[in-house]
Design a protein around this nucleic acid. Structure first.
Lengths: 131, 131
DNA sequence: CCTGATAGTGATAATGATTATCATTTGCAT
DNA sequence: ATGCAAATGATAATCATTATCACTATCAGG
């Protein structure tokens, strides 16, 4: 990425000032609502560029990619299959164990993704189901 | 799934007699090569039906779903970003820690997916030669 | 200042994986 | 045998994403 264009600044700003996990279409629509419309192709290119520059991060959820701020500590995700909400967690011990697994398997880790699927507290209560 | 049709048996058999992580197109092509051609739509429907019946399992990799046998113990995956190979591992301690995280967050877990990305031993050694 | 090179944009076509449609076939159960 | 729901297969449609291409913006050098 040679230039942080106006459009890419808008994308980066949107992501950085929120805790949301954005997909490309949401970003395009939100920017459009704010009167700073950015073409959908530009959004995709911008997201890819910003990610490879380390300015944002992504997770692959189901069949689409979602982007979030990179300026926070590494974490993994709890995903509610009922309402789609995403909660973050960190667990240093799991991180360390993952590293051990890689060592055991002579595997050099570039990154990892731990997704836990289930039902969040709110949804569980709405359904009247107990833990 | 009311009936385990001839086509679904073929799909299930293919997956169960291998350790491969199959995508729909691979299954369609392989069955076709074996002279038991199955329409691609039927492959998709069969995979979904077999999975919801618990007969096979899937992981979402990049932008496509891959299916594998369900008749083996739970495990997670090491994915080589260089050659695409998938190695399995199990780590009971991580499993337990995940459960703890869910309890701490009042989250009821349905399942999880731990993917570790990196470079396998073979590819790391080959990088000295070429690529 | 010009000018040329090139990164970036935006509209849109194309792609790849997956799902929906619909006419036809299959496998039970009466 | 008959009826009927499930399943199939060809194909259209959809959805997320990438490629194309003409155009614009930015920057470095003359």
């Amino acid at each position: 990425m040679q230039r942080l264009s106006y459009q890419r600044q808008a994308i980066l700003n949107l992501i950085n000032t929120s805790n949301h996990h954005w997909d490309a279409e949401e970003i395009s629509r939100t920017l459009s609502d704010q009167g700073e419309s950015v073409g959908i192709a530009t959004v995709y290119r911008g997201l890819a560029a910003l990610e490879s520059a380390g300015l944002i991060e992504s997770i692959q959820l189901d069949n689409k990619k979602r982007y979030e701020r990179a300026n926070k500590a590494h974490h993994d995700h709890l995903i509610c299959e009922s309402c789609g909400s995403i909660k973050e967690f960190i667990h240093p011990e799991i991180e360390q164990l993952q590293q051990n697994i890689c060592t055991d398997n002579q595997f050099s880790m570039n990154g990892h993704q731990l997704l836990i699927f289930g039902t969040c507290n709110t949804c569980r209560q709405n359904k009247g189901v107990s833990l």
